[in-house]
Amino acid sequence: MRYAGIMIFVLALFAGQSVCFGQAVSSSDMIAYPKDFDNKTVTYSGEVIGDVMRRGDHAWINVNDGRSAVGVWITAAMASEIGPAGDFKHTGDIVEVTGVFNRVCVQHGGDLDIHAQSMQVLRRGSLKECVIDKVKKDWAVKLLGVVAILWILSLLKMR
């Protein structure tokens, strides 16, 4: 009886976990073969880009896996876990989302999206180092001199 109890506990644990595990997919797979994943639980990971767009008790994030970006509908609680989103100055959080993929989401007017059931931040985003390219700087200064000389010459010709 004691073993049966342990077995039930372990099974329940895995049953609970199975909801949060789905087939690992890439954005290009979802876009190219949406029928294959429609209404299935998928696991998708990538960088959060742009803005975390809060809409009431949920939010939209766009997650880019290096090929394309796909919209993910997350809860406000999940949204609060997200740090910086990727842009010119930031590398965004790398997240792994598990949820239901919708080829045509009726709730969202026909979007191709994922409704997240769980989300995990795999790597925190960060501020990118601001580096000024020295070669570009040298060229900018040299070209400034060229433009100044040309301008003076053209003024002299006009006189």
Binding site: F88, C130, V131, I132, D133, K136, K137, W139, A140, L143, L144, V146, V147, L150, W151, L153, S154, K157
Partner: peptide
């Protein structure tokens, strides 16, 4: 700041060609 340099070079190239052609 790095993109500023891109535009500075772009402006200089356009103006340099413009001045030479006008000359």
């Amino acid at each position: 700041f790095d993109p500023c340099l891109d535009f500075l070079i772009g402006i200089e190239v356009a103006i340099a060609f413009g001045i030479v052609l006008r000359y």
